[in-house]
Amino acid sequence: MTATNLADVEYVVRIIAQTAVDKEKEFGDFDAVVGDGDLGYSLARGFEKVLADWDSYKRDDVSAFLQQIAVTITSRIGGSSGPLWGTAFLRASVTAKQFDEITGTAAVAMLRAATDGIKARGNSDLGDKTLLDALVPATDELERMITSGANAADSREAFAKTTRERAEATSELEAKRGRASYSGERSIGSPDAGALAVAIIIERIVAGWPER
């Protein structure tokens, strides 16, 4: 049993890739505040390859599609971001196999698998000032909305809003993982670059959803 309704998944991946390429400089500037400034460059090199290879990916089912994305970005994104983002896509790919259709519930399960994968690969957890501090609470909120019977549009809006709020709130945290951790307490006062990048990506996905 494997979901084959690819259109929504293709849309999400395409916006992630396009945003990473469009916002290369901005993401790099976020990272330069406390990290080493290479986040924008790293993500752009990986996702521009995704866009270049777009037509060559096999589209047998959602899982197979996402796994090819995982291979591309793990190979092309330098430093630790490659295995971290690659793991997120790979775990989402494996989880997609459990669903006949990619519904909101499936999306929550795939997001959960992705963030768990990032935790495991990066030996990191909530509070370490990473993108997890935005994406995990946003996934919780999305799940809460869906479970409470909210309509899809409201659920998406709440997902984007929570991601943004929690990304901004990483300013208060001290970096414990990655290059930014070398700056220790000096990282307090600036938001995490990865969390901000995820917020911008999700805002774009949600804003464009009706016309996807």
Partner: peptide, 14 residues
Amino acid sequence: KMVFEMAQEMSAAE
């Protein structure tokens, strides 16, 4: 460690 664990997981999924 990160590269090999990733390759192991990817290959296992395949």
